[in-house]
Design a protein around this nucleic acid. Structure first.
Lengths: 351, 351
DNA sequence: TTTTTTTACGCAATCGTTCCCGGCAACGAT
DNA sequence: ATCGTTGCCGGGAACGATTGCGTAAAAAAA
């Protein structure tokens, strides 16, 4: 089975012209008479002619498609980012090829090789939690592949980057927890060396320090797969509960981490926010409907996607190699809801 | 900026061979001596040669990429389906190009034209809520484009289709509501002529009929954008509340519809399930954490994606035109949780 | 040795499009 | 009459890879 489309040759044959003339007529070249142009244009229109993008790609040595690699699309944050990317891409005639690493370095590499062998013109990527070896990305970058990092960025590669203000987001969240009366605040986070982990934990620690609360390393837990695997969250939560001095609140640094912590606390019969405060980074629009409604730090995901794509277009369409790179830092939003209302629960106790 | 890859010509030049010899050596042709093969293979390996897929596409007249059109990817059901599609596609060397219609007929048409002009080898689509004119799809299909419909299918086009057992899913849900003690069960659904609406409402009506409950058309509401626009759900819910005889339960036929109904009920201070039962189709894994935990009908989304892609591959790779089409109907899953426990709330009242 | 067969490779067309050249009218200027 | 211009168009190479066909040299058969 195949789907045959009309070509420039068909038009040429039908009209008794050469392919060059037809091509020029379609591109409205000054070398072609108005008469011929009209003839060709009308015939093309009538027969629904569209230039074959594959032939164009071969000729122009570019595919007008870009690759996007994220850990998974079934994640509100990433699907919102992708929406942002696509909105700009489509407006500029670019196609977006999406691939998922599922937090696996191997799958990320496979996707990377697949996409580059598919001749993408550029790449937007948020690396997987497993990725520690950036040599392939570096090689790609040094060979001239335009790359934009977002979310989980690679500091040692010099190119455009787009991130949320992770430091401030975490700082605000932790400060809010402290102001709400929590003192032993655990951090459930992504793997240690991930850029977002480093930035968010720095904000967390700064807020603690500012309030004269000592940082307790036993309260900081890392999930190797960013919460994608339920059991890893289960493990760190039970570690926290086995501590001699249990935490009175949890700050989770990623979407899946936040919701899975809630799932585990409920399973354990822990009352949130009375027995344990909970808040974290999240971009799902369901958090306010949860029991209890979750306090969250929200990232401007759609906008991050838009900016990433715009920056990538800059790289792709620049004539000369770009050397002046920027890192865009976008503000996060703090949404305070029921899961951190310790004060209120105290009032209840008093009443 | 550009990313230059090594070609067969480069290898030929470097080794003093012709391109045909190199090509044949790489494909392990019997016409090439072991010596030459080894030479070429080693050089190709060392220089990380990959055949240019664009050149291959041009030659073979196929792109080894397929198009997928859904209303939005930021929807658990569709992102799960896409995961299923991708898993099969990648295993077979196919690339997946994803486009979103956002429930707009115009955007769907644009995407369709874009994808087909990009020479996709096949198409998997769940039509938008707005789509009533299938002429373009029909034309595409008659021209030989392999198409598989899933979820929202088009009955008048004869090709492979993959759906959940919408009738039974809705029937089970409605029956469960009735057994839980609800009598005036409203249906908040997608636009009237959509395949899933027709099937699900049929199941709903059958369950009512079986329990000697008259179907009240004023209790059946349609949301033109499938709940993507919050205000449309707001409108139909307030219509339901303005009824002389208000419903005592809502059955929602889609993910966004279900969660937005809950959002609206909470905003109105309605207690679920005591004052109003609520359940619906949903594939998010957060429903059990909601307040109250939602009873849902879940579709085997990932599997639906896998099957859709497998069927599409059948169409694409078949030598002769396929005339024997099948419609796969997959079972749904009924998950009973707190949002439909009217009985329990009665007990409470008694207590 | 001559003829036939086999081995191992090159030439060139092809996919659809663009674009550099070159050419041929017609026309005005010299 | 000749030259230069302009307008209009066709030929053919190129992008990267595959493949049918042709063919030189080497090996085998006569």
């Amino acid at each position: 089975m195949k789907f045959e489309a009309i070509t420039i040759k068909d038009i040429a044959k039908a009209l008794g012209l050469s392919t060059s003339t037809v091509s020029r007529a379609l591109r409205d070249s000054y070398e072609i008479s108005l008469e011929t142009k009209k003839l060709v244009l009308e015939y093309a229109e009538k027969n629904n002619y569209h230039p074959n993008p594959i032939a164009l790609s071969l000729k122009e040595r570019k595919s007008r498609s870009i690759g996007v690699i994220v850990c998974e699309i079934a994640n509100s944050y990433f699907s919102q980012v992708i929406n942002g990317i696509e909105s700009i891409a489509y407006n500029n005639g670019y196609n977006v090829m999406i691939a998922q690493s599922r937090e696996s370095f191997d799958r990320e590499m496979l996707n990377l090789q697949y996409l580059t062998s598919r001749s993408i013109d550029g790449l937007i990527i948020s690396v997987s939690t497993e990725t520690k070896d950036f040599s392939y990305l570096k090689e790609l970058h040094s060979k001239g592949m335009p790359i934009v990092f977002f979310d989980r960025i690679v500091n040692e590669i010099d190119t455009h980057k787009v991130i949320a203000d992770n430091y401030k987001g975490a700082y605000d969240a932790t400060t809010h927890l402290i102001k709400s009366g929590y003192r032993r605040i655990a951090a459930v986070s992504n793997p240690e060396m991930l850029s977002i982990t480093i930035e968010r934990l720095a904000g967390y620690k700064a807020a603690l320090a500012e309030n004269n609360i000592e940082v307790d390393d036993s309260l900081i837990k890392y999930c190797q797969h960013g919460g994608m695997i339920f059991s890893e969250v289960e493990e760190v939560v039970s570690e926290l509960f086995n501590l001699e001095q249990k935490p009175d609140a949890i700050f989770a640094t990623a979407d899946k981490l936040t919701t899975n912590c809630l799932r585990l606390l409920k399973a354990r019969g822990i009352s949130v926010p009375a027995d344990m405060g909970l808040m974290g980074f999240s971009n799902t629009d369901l958090t306010e409907l949860l029991d209890p409604p979750l306090s969250i730090i929200k990232q401007p995901a759609f906008e991050m996607g838009e900016i990433s794509m715009a920056l990538l277009l800059q790289l792709i369409e620049s004539k000369r190699p770009v050397t002046d790179f920027e890192t865009r830092v976008l503000p996060t939003e703090l949404l305070i809801r029921g899961s951190t209302r310790k004060i209120k629960s105290k009032e209840k106790e008093i009443a």
